[in-house]
């Protein structure tokens, strides 16, 4: 599903974000990527969504060789991948239903199709009763569910969740993780990045640890192995304090 073959990314300022990274993710996998700030997680995601282009190596996603795509193809690439972020990135002046519908509108879906798909997706994420509310009327967890619904509405084969629990309290964070697991059970490949040790350890799924642009660990049923999670961004209070090096 996702193949990185000796991928290197050097930014114009000379900073090397990824150096010769090899990564292979099978379809329907649930993979967690951990790494301290600046390790290269964000660059990895930006390469997948084509916000950045790699300097060398090969990236193949869903059979599509990223060397062959042109600027015109980029929107099509993005439609094949759902992404959710720590800060939700919802349109504040549109209702919940409209936010979800927006992803379909930009790809030219018919109104009838949108009207059918949006309520279904909101039911899946447990927000069917809040379709007509605005994002500011929702809790953080609910906003993230809206973002997930928007990411999934086009039924992508891959869902990237970039620190989706970063701004949420533990209860809401778990609900989001459970939702991601549910989506994964339906057959979507999920790529999760997080700093939350408890979540990583409880998931018992594949964990890839990145440091300085390289993969330093890749474990089936892995655990959180970073020694000093200095970049908790205040969201995982109470969970990840006093992390010890494991393994």
């Amino acid at each position: 599903m996702i193949l990185f073959d000796r991928v290197t990314k050097v930014y114009p300022n000379g900073q090397t974000a990824l150096s010769g990274l090899n990564l292979h993710i099978e379809p329907k996998e649930f993979v967690t990527i951990v790494g301290s700030s600046g390790a290269g997680k964000s660059t990895l995601i930006k390469l997948l969504t084509r916000e950045e282009t790699h300097s060398s190596g090969k990236i193949i996603v869903g059979g599509l060789d990223y060397d062959t795509i042109t600027a015109k193809d980029v929107p099509l690439v993005r439609r094949r991948i759902g992404v959710v972020f720590q800060d939700f990135k919802l349109l504040p002046n549109r209702r919940v239903g409209e936010n979800v519908a927006f992803a379909l509108e930009v790809s030219g879906a018919r109104q009838r199709e949108i009207k059918r798909a949006v309520p279904k997706m909101l039911t899946l994420v447990g927000l069917s009763a809040k379709q007509n509310m605005y994002p500011h009327e929702l809790s953080g967890g609910e906003r993230q569910r809206v973002a997930i619904a928007r990411a999934l509405i086009r039924q992508p084969k891959i869902l990237i969740a970039d620190e989706p629990t970063g701004n949420l309290d533990p209860g809401n964070a778990w609900q989001i993780i459970e939702l991601l697991l549910k989506i994964n059970r339906f057959g979507t490949t999920v790529l999760l990045t997080t700093h939350n040790k408890e979540i990583v350890n409880a998931l018992k799924r594949r964990v890839i640890t990145i440091n300085r642009g390289r993969i330093i660990r890749d474990d089936e049923q892995g655990r959180y192995t970073l020694e000093n999670p200095t970049t908790l961004k205040g969201a995982t209070k109470g969970i990840a304090t006093g992390v010890e090096a494991q393994n």
């Binding site: 969504t49 929107p75 690439v77 993005r78 439609r79 990135k89 927006f102 992803a103 930009v106 086009r154």
Partner: peptide, 11 residues
């Protein structure tokens, strides 16, 4: 957000 959800440049 438009870019994120795959809007074309002209959209």
């Amino acid at each position: 957000i438009m870019k994120l959800v795959g809007a074309t440049k002209w959209f």
